[in-house]
Design a binder for these strands. Structure first.
Lengths: 284, 284
DNA sequence: ATACTTTATGTAATTTTATTACAGAATTAC
DNA sequence: GTAATTCTGTAATAAAATTACATAAAGTAT
């Protein structure tokens, strides 16, 4: 139980709590901001329970005690998830839905930042460094992510391409060779074309990195699965925060790549940046 | 002095602090996370000062006392601004650069969330709703953003396209008509092809929305300028957080669009979502 | 239904933590 | 060099949180 979702946790587990814990939960949910500022005695009084009950409540939610609980509660308030339901409602106006959309993105970034497996990141960077060729595959929303990835990695002086065409994907994965790296991006991790390509590529000795939901089919089929769990209700409207997190993870990988290449590599990067100058008007 | 910048405040005012306050500041800056978890006695010991000195330090920074200080410090850590300089350093390892990249994105999202002009958002949604056609233009990194935007807006049952080809951009803007909406995405706001297209489109009576840096050439030339100021050192390496913020803003606009269309429109969205089913393997 | 077990909750003591009041030291101004 | 001011620590006090324990409530088995 991590502190990102402390408030959500309280809400979700509410029914499983016992009488006095429910009182405490209600008091906190009624005004979380206030709770972060009050003493245990105060909150106990407000909830109508004893101080140890509040303390026990805090420990039940995986915190060291009341002060620690307040701290984590305060943090979870900043990251935006004020209430369990920060989903957009049909009758929201601009001042309601705008912060909600931002909050969702912020919340998921904070969550993933704390969950991400650093040693896995390192391993994927290794793979990127040692790959003979890199292919980014994605469809739909993830197609835009794949394109963005290519836009980043082509600067790194190695053969990179992105593909959004399922026929091309089939052909490339059929022709995969050891040393090739197939970087598959799929939020659902169930997109047939992507899974099939992952199978083929791997059968031909290439390595597969999957950027996807935890435990998805793609995650299972990948040599390296970057598993990203976002809070969005995937099916409704359209995916939003998953691709944001995916992009940031690609930034992390790109950064890791550059740093491992060392300072000399920056000259190369600089050369590429300089090339853009003539495409821009000068400042005012 | 607000809590978003507590750490920055400490850093900025460091030189104006007196001897023992400096010691406390150093101890906190050395490991802010740790500071949020320790007692006043602990921190005092670590800083080599007395407990009241720590307490006075806290009050000097506008907090009620040590516990309140810890709370605000913890909050400011979440929102990402760990250090004044949370830029990646050449000798950073994976556990250093990974959170930094995330923090930068989070920090900028929080900042823009609080700065964004809601009435402007509403106006742009109006434009999207009344447009006869919508074109998303972007190059390089913003090309990926434009692609993502198209991927979202094509669901809305109106003629939308994205373009990353400067010749096509010229032709389309030359052929622009009243009722057309040109949505220009450019972080620098100085990309010639984009500026020229904005000029042409506007000359032909089309409306131009610019998603760009405050005060940029594109901002000035747009009918509606969504101005986004991000903290990244644009020129180094490659743009990262600007495109993240741009994507979230497009999510906001798309959401605004859907909500204005009303509940019936959800059936249309649902139809589109359903169409994807056959492209996916079923869950396990 | 009653006795037994388990779980839940509060009281009171203890411990930890933070704050205040004050005094002595250091610094500055004259 | 003395007085005023500012800084900083010690020790006392106050506040807050936690623990240990006892009682009460709920659940279970006979």
């Amino acid at each position: 139980m991590n502190y990102q979702n402390l408030l959500s946790s309280i809400n979700v587990t509410f029914e499983t709590l016992n009488k006095s814990e429910k009182k405490v939960a209600s008091a906190i949910l009624a005004d979380p901001e206030a709770a972060t500022g009050s003493s245990i005695a105060n909150l106990a009084k407000k909830a109508g329970v004893s101080e140890p009950s509040v303390n026990r409540f805090c420990k039940r939610f995986g915190t060291a005690g009341f002060p620690d609980f307040k701290l984590k509660l305060a943090q979870c308030l900043v990251s935006g998830v004020k209430f369990v339901n920060s989903n957009v409602q049909l009758n929201d106006n601009v001042s309601k839905y705008t912060p909600k959309i931002f909050d969702n993105a912020i919340h998921d970034l904070v969550a993933i930042k704390n969950q991400i497996d650093l040693s896995l990141v390192e391993k994927v960077v290794d793979q990127l460094l040692s790959a003979r060729r890199i292919f980014f595959f994605g469809l739909g929303t993830s197609g835009a992510v794949a394109r963005d990835a290519e836009n980043k990695f082509f600067r790194f002086d190695l053969p990179v391409s992105f593909h959004v065409d399922v026929l091309t994907m089939r052909m490339l994965s059929a022709a995969a060779k050891p040393g090739d790296l197939f970087f598959m991006i799929s939020h659902t991790g169930r997109t047939k074309a992507i899974i099939d390509a992952a199978d083929d590529a791997q059968a031909n000795g290439a390595r597969v990195v999957g950027l996807t939901t935890p435990g998805s089919m793609l995650a299972k089929k990948s040599n390296f699965a970057l598993e990203v769990s976002v809070s969005e209700n995937t099916e409704e409207y359209m995916a939003m925060t998953s691709r944001i997190v995916h992009l940031v993870i690609l930034d992390v990988l790109a950064t890791g790549f550059i740093l491992r290449k060392g300072p000399d590599f920056l000259n190369h990067m600089e050369k590429i940046n300089r090339s853009l100058k003539p495409t821009r008007y000068k400042n005012n």
